[in-house]
Amino acid sequence: MAKLSIKDLEEIRNKVKKTAMLREGISNAKITVHMGTCGIAAGARTIMNTVIKIVEESKRDDIIVTTSGCAGFCSKEPMATIELKGEAPVKYSDLTEDKIRRIFDEHVLKGKIVKDYALVIGSEREL
C-alpha cells in the first residue's frame, strides 16, 4: 500500500462512512422486509435481494434495510414497510420485483407514497 495523502484519507472515510452510519443506526429511510415463514414462502427472499440491489445502485448511504417477522397479513405477503425519517411507516403488500422498484423510486427517493400498493399507513396498533 502506498502512502496516502490527505485527499486519499478523505476518500477512504467517505467509502466506509456508510458502514459506520449503519452501525450507529443513523438513517433517513428504513426498509423492512417481512420474512416470516409465510413471507419467505411467498417470495420475500427475492424481494430482499432486489431491495439490497437497488439500495446499492442508488448510492444512497442513509438507507437501512432490515427484516422482521410475519406482519400478520399472511395472505398479502410478500410485504415490506417503508419508514422515512419523521414520518409514519407505510406497509406495502403483494409485492413483486417491479412493485418494489417503483416503491423505492417514488416513496423512498422522492417521498411520495405509492397509494396503489399501500396497505396501511401507520403501525397496526394505530389501525
Binding site: 484519507l9 477512504i12 472515510r13 467509502k15 459506520a20 452501525r23 450507529e24
Partner: peptide, 12 residues
Amino acid sequence: LIDAEKIDDYIG
C-alpha cells in the same frame, strides 16, 4: 462499533 484491527473502520 469498529473492528479494532481495521484502520478503515476507525477512519470511517
